[in-house]
Simulated assay, not measured.
Amino acid sequence: MRLTVYLAGEIHSSWRDEIKEKAAALKLPIDFVGPQENHDRSDNIGEEIIGEQPGPFYKDWAASSFNNLRTEVLMQKADLVIALFGEKYKQWNTAMDASAAVALGKPLILIRPEQHIHALKELSRKANATVENCDQAIKALKYIFD
């Protein structure tokens, strides 16, 4: 059995690489998907597809349409979602993706540091599992195959 796992969360750090490397080291049969990790491409995809927009609002509006399309297609095909709430970056997209996973009935592993326990208490209760770091998330993935 192979699983497809959607990795939701900020795109500025290497946490996805850490998850992928640890899963590969354990030989877990997992394919990983996620948001566009090239920040410039993500910001400019609307203009890349439909052309120059008349201002920043419209540029963001166009880009968000295609980013949301990509996310929805990949998340619907995923068997499971891991959503990471890091310590440094704003987490709006992570919250949106984690909530979408819950709404779609996708199993959800929520990674959140201790300082976010209170802020994420409701979302954490909706997740199938809540952990504090990538190592714990990998252990949860491995348990699926044990």
Score class of each variant (00 low, 15 high):
His12Val: 05
His12Gly: 10
Ser14Phe: 10
Trp15Asn: 09
Asp17Asn: 09
Asp17Pro: 00
Glu18Val: 03
Lys20Pro: 02
Glu21Val: 07
Glu21Leu: 09
Ala23Val: 03
Ala24Gln: 09
Ala25Gly: 10
Ala25Asp: 13
Ala25Leu: 12
Leu28Arg: 02
Phe32Arg: 00
Pro35Asn: 13
Asn38Arg: 05
Asn38Ala: 09
His39Gln: 15
Asp40Tyr: 13
Asp40Pro: 09
Asp43Ser: 15
Asp43Lys: 15
Gly46Tyr: 02
Glu47Met: 06
Glu48Leu: 11
Gly51Lys: 00
Glu52Gln: 04
Gln53Ala: 01
Phe57Asn: 05
Tyr58Gly: 07
Tyr58Asp: 15
Lys59Gln: 04
Asp60Pro: 00
Trp61Glu: 13
Ala62Cys: 02
Ser65Met: 07
Ser65Trp: 02
Leu69Val: 08
Arg70Ile: 12
Thr71Asp: 15
Glu72Ile: 03
Glu72Met: 07
Val73Leu: 12
Met75Cys: 04
Gln76Asp: 14
Leu80His: 06
Ile82Leu: 05
Ala83Met: 04
Phe85Thr: 04
Phe85Gly: 01
Gly86Ala: 10
Gln91Ile: 03
Gln91Asn: 14
Trp92Asp: 15
Trp92His: 14
Thr94Arg: 13
Thr94Lys: 11
Met96Leu: 10
Met96Trp: 12
Asp97Glu: 14
Ala98Asp: 03
Ser99Ala: 08
Ser99Gln: 08
Ala100Thr: 12
Ala101Val: 01
Ala101Tyr: 02
Val102Thr: 05
Ala103Lys: 07
Leu104Glu: 13
Lys106Leu: 07
Leu110Cys: 03
Ile111Cys: 08
Arg112Leu: 09
Arg112Glu: 08
Pro113Glu: 06
Glu114Pro: 02
